[in-house]
Simulated scan of single mutants.
Amino acid sequence: MDYSYLITPFLAWLICGLTKFLVNSIKSKRLAFDLIGYGGMPSNHSAIVSSMVSLIAFKEGIDSSAFGVSLTLAFIVILDANSLRQQIGKHAKAINEINSNGNIKLRERIGHTKLEILVGILIGMITGLFIA
């Protein structure tokens, strides 16, 4: 049985998560456990889906139906990370400003910039290539 299709996205997630933790810790000059989650450099979602796209491309070829399905899913996830989730972050910031005396603060860092997505895609592609 070929476990590479199970291992690859998990490995991409792990590498990306550790990278994000290191980047956040260096930027904030402390161990940034509270910054783990959505948003930030690099994009976990982009790394996970692009790792699968590249693994399928290297193992089965770009003319396989699995490649087409994985590429379609990757486009949806990446577009969502950049557009929809960035808008949600802007809404959370506006709500937090309106509700400044409230005891509940919404998370504002949700979406990703194009650079964060690009780095996530590169991590995913390298992971897929390495496992293939």
Rank of each mutant, 00 (worst) to 15 (best):
S70K: 02
K59H: 01
H112K: 09
I98H: 04
G37C: 12
L129T: 13
V53N: 06
S43A: 13
L73C: 09
V23H: 06
L31R: 04
M1H: 10
D2R: 04
S28L: 08
S51E: 03
T19K: 11
I36N: 00
K20A: 13
A12G: 10
D34M: 01
F21C: 08
L31P: 05
S46C: 05
H45Q: 14
Y38I: 01
S28C: 01
I126L: 15
P42L: 01
E97I: 06
G111F: 00
Q86F: 11
I104Y: 09
A81G: 15
I110G: 13
I95P: 04
I88D: 00
S28T: 08
G102F: 08
C16E: 07
M41S: 08
N103Q: 07
N44E: 10
A12S: 13
V119G: 00
S25P: 13
G61S: 07
G89N: 03
T127L: 03
S4R: 10
T8Q: 14
G40T: 03
V49M: 06
S43M: 14
T72F: 12
I117A: 03
K27V: 05
F10T: 14
E116A: 03
I7W: 10
S43C: 14
L14W: 07
R107T: 12
K59A: 03
F21A: 05
K29E: 15
I117M: 06
N96T: 02
V119K: 00
R30E: 15
H112D: 13
V77N: 13
N101H: 06
L79S: 10
K59I: 00
G17A: 05
M1W: 03
I123E: 01
V49W: 09
T127W: 04
M41I: 02
L71D: 11
R109T: 11
T19M: 07
N24D: 14
L73E: 12
F58G: 01
L106Q: 02
K93R: 14
G102W: 15
I95N: 06
I26F: 04
S64W: 12
I76G: 12
S83E: 14
K114F: 07
V77R: 09
L73V: 10
V23P: 07
I76R: 13
S46I: 01
L6K: 02
L106N: 07
S43N: 14
D34W: 02
S4V: 02
C16R: 02
G68L: 10
A12Y: 12
N99I: 00
A92R: 05
N103M: 08
S4A: 09
I48H: 10
R85L: 10
G89V: 11
A81V: 04
A12R: 09
A74Y: 05
R109S: 13
F21I: 11
A94T: 14
H112I: 01
L31Y: 15
S28N: 15
K59E: 08
S70V: 01
V119R: 00
S43W: 15
F75N: 12
K114V: 13
I126P: 02
L31K: 11
A12K: 07
I36V: 09
M125V: 03
V49P: 10
L115V: 15
M41L: 14
N24Q: 12
V53K: 04
S70H: 05
A132C: 14
G37R: 12
S46W: 02
A57Q: 12
I88E: 02
